[in-house]
């Protein structure tokens, strides 16, 4: 998968799948089974992730897409309300934007 990311632009669907796998790694497979993870899922309310889980999710995003996007900078620019409302779709769109601007 890493090879693909460095050579091709990922589709919206591919990015979604990768992010979903990171969420599974962070909160654990057995919990994810009971959850309906969609693009509209918010990290805080729907996925019930606390700040340390959001940090560890963002570390996975960083190490996967590291060279191509400034995820840390993007996340840092968010204020509290934006973080509370952050949805999966926001990240997918951000990654897509970074890819197409290359």
């Amino acid at each position: 998968m890493d090879a693909i990311t460095t050579q091709h632009k990922l589709s919206n669907e591919e990015i979604f799948t990768i992010l979903k796998s990171f969420i599974t790694e962070v909160i654990g497979e057995e919990f994810v089974e009971d959850m309906d993870i969609s693009r509209e899922s918010s990290f805080t309310r729907d996925l019930e992730m606390d700040s340390i889980e959001i940090v560890s999710f963002s570390e996975k995003v960083k190490s996967h897409f590291g060279e191509h996007i400034d995820f840390t900078g993007w996340l840092s620019s968010m204020d509290l309300d934006q973080l509370i409302n952050l949805k999966l779709d926001d990240i997918i769109n951000y990654i897509e934007t970074c890819q197409s601007s290359k």
């Binding site: 940090v55 840092s76 620019s77 204020d79």
Partner: peptide, 12 residues
């Protein structure tokens, strides 16, 4: 420590 992890929260 949160300043570093999620600076947006600290600034808020």
């Amino acid at each position: 420590k949160m300043m570093e992890d999620l600076p947006g929260i600290h600034e808020w």
